[in-house]
Nucleic acid binder design. Structure first.
Lengths: 256, 256
DNA sequence: ATCCTCTTTCTAAAATAATCATAATAATAC
DNA sequence: GTATTATTATGATTATTTTAGAAAGAGGAT
């Protein structure tokens, strides 16, 4: 044996995570083993819930029904979020201080600011810290707090106090679970909502990264009413109703 | 015998730390011993928690594809720190709250508490957060603060305030650059020193993870005088002078 | 739809490779 | 010298991969 079986399965896992699907024949050739061996590998990985076997190969498991973990959410609508993140990054000027929440959209934003200079970034997302930790030109601050393992974000009253008592920022970029006119901005968890409220309260400008999935959706924990938002960045041409709602609240609309 | 057995094991440890996985057959040829000998080596290294044996070889115990942190390439000291970390972990009882600083020794400690229950861990080290982020049984809190990119630790007045105003703990485990009788505990950077001072001030018991490299070494930023320490865990049999120093200050000595 | 063909999957057995248990041997320590 | 430890040798056991033939799916042509 030239490589470890477990190592091969790890690599298959990595491949499917980036390519979203794999072919048995392709992997068999790549690792120089028979298709039967690959099928056995895929069977094991399926039992671990990593992928779903299909005729001829396998696709990424979408964690059906249950709450998506952070890693899984990352790939849903990645292209849309990437576009929104890139547009949002263009709003940031050098020397500014910005808050980023623990949303996937904010992570995509972070990927677009690596070469900006004199920036201070404050976030409660450990993924954003990891993403920017090698940027010498960015002053990177974590809010700290209790680690929420599902989101890999820092939350709770510690995070909230840290934000309110120590920081202020020019801009706050965030996303959330849903938005409706009557209930406003709502999120999946109360703890995240508190953190976002705090960041909102100490920021000059509030920018909502709003892909089409958020529109009309609502959840229980309320972050704030819609009028707290200054700018919305979205990926769809808004219908008349939404356009009227946003314009009535004096919210700038950016479509990407 | 052409090489010492323990030396061969150290080399295997070094190889797996850089290559992330090893093959029994490969190592057997490389060291010109039988596969059985290599298997015995891997068995010993597995018991020490360095690697995980798999069919045909072994992989690193710190998750596949995982990153090696800054100082972990120093394999010889790694073994010492691992021993100290394991001994320190034995001092922790379930239900306790502990502070861990951003030292390599504390990281090794963290690796030994993954199956303890009801623990609350507060740390300013992003490596420790990453290490424990999958432990559902551990309440994990980050101090937050400005990210020091060299150490991947959170420091500064934000971290210090967070600690002093929000937390308290049963035990504080730390290491530092050096210790001498006259100057006490000293560290490489002032920022780290402030964080350690704060953690010390709000902890019941202070436990110093002190491998032999620290003894007699000194640096500029002072953390605290030696009498703030309650327990020292060290890897060498202390000479009379050090023993008298510690015992004179009523410090417990644990040798591993 | 049914039939046909090609491909993939499944199953079980055989082949290969690695591990384990144990005893024997070699090296080192006391 | 003996005691202790490390290494090797051997055969039994177990894990993995391959092989090969049967069953089932996909897709096109009739």
């Amino acid at each position: 044996m030239t490589t470890l079986a477990v190592e091969r399965r790890n690599q298959i896992e990595a491949i499917i995570n980036t390519k979203k699907s794999v072919l048995v024949a392709e992997l068999a050739e790549q690792f120089d083993v028979t298709p039967e061996t690959i099928r056995a590998d895929l069977f094991k990985l399926e039992k671990k819930g990593i992928l779903i076997r299909t005729y001829g190969g396998a696709t990424l498991s979408t964690g059906s029904g249950a709450e998506l973990t952070f890693k899984e959410r990352d790939v849903v609508n990645a292209e849309v979020k990437r576009r929104i993140g890139a547009r949002a990054a263009a709003l940031i000027r050098s020397g500014e201080t910005i808050f980023l929440d623990a949303s996937t959209s904010a992570l995509y934003l972070a990927r677009n600011i690596k070469d900006k200079h004199g920036l201070t970034v404050i976030t409660n997302a450990s993924s954003i810290v990891a993403e920017l930790s090698e940027c010498e030109n960015i002053k990177l601050i974590s809010t700290g707090g209790l680690l929420s393992k599902r989101n890999m974000s820092y939350t709770g009253r510690f995070a909230e106090r840290m934000i309110r008592e120590n920081f202020a920022a020019n801009k706050f970029f965030f996303s959330c679970k849903g938005v409706t006119e009557e209930r406003g901005l709502t999120d999946a968890s109360e703890e995240e909502a508190y953190v976002k409220q705090a960041m909102m309260d100490v920021s000059d400008t509030v920018i909502f990264l709003c892909d089409h999935n958020k529109l009309g959706r609502k959840s229980i924990p309320v972050i704030a009413s819609l009028d707290r938002v200054d700018t919305v960045i979205t990926d769809v041409r808004l219908d008349h109703e939404w356009r009227n709602t946003f314009e009535g609240l004096d919210i700038d609309i950016i479509t990407v």
